[in-house]
């Protein structure tokens, strides 16, 4: 599936819920299924700056695809990063760089997060894209 197709799926899933408590419940479930980062990569270098709870992200190439793993000490944050990883992991770095992130606005995630968490979300997206830029350079 392309990044766009996955994002459309996520938007569809979120539109099925009536209220934000249900969406949070869903995010918590997603958080529990997050592909966890190997403990050796839970270093300060892999911490995303700008998040109030701790978020670690690791990226590595599998062939021409970039694979993300992550973890957080807060479960809702894990849910947020799980959504992002679902959209961007196992994709070509160039596709990740080119992908837009409108689905975040479409599911209304940003306005339903506290300002600090919304900032954290922006930092997470930025970090995933930075990894893609770094690995694309390597592939070239």
């Amino acid at each position: 599936m392309t990044i766009q197709e996955i994002q459309n799926d996520i938007v569809d899933e979120f539109s099925m819920f009536d209220d934000w408590m249900q969406r949070y419940e869903y995010m918590i479930e997603l958080g529990k299924s997050l592909p966890l980062i190997d403990d050796q990569y839970k270093t300060d270098d892999n911490l995303i700056k700008g998040c109030q709870s701790k978020v670690w992200v690791h990226a590595e190439l599998d062939g021409d695809r970039l694979v993300f793993t992550a973890d957080s000490d807060a479960i809702i944050t894990k849910g947020i990063i799980a959504i992002l990883i679902r959209a961007f992991s196992n994709q070509k770095p160039q596709d990740i760089i080119d992908a837009d992130t409108d689905f975040i606005d479409e599911i209304g995630l940003k306005e339903h997060l506290s300002p600090t968490r919304a900032n954290g979300l922006v930092s997470m997206i930025k970090q995933l894209k930075l990894y893609a830029v770094a690995y694309q350079t390597q592939l070239n």
Binding site: M21, Y24, Q52, T77, S114
Partner: peptide, 21 residues
């Protein structure tokens, strides 16, 4: 087993204002 931010976030959705952190 629960992070204070997560508890605070859910309480906010219920209209309850607390501080976390």
């Amino acid at each position: 087993g629960a992070h204070p931010y997560d508890i605070g976030t859910i309480l906010d959705k219920l209209g309850i204002a607390v501080r976390t952190g």
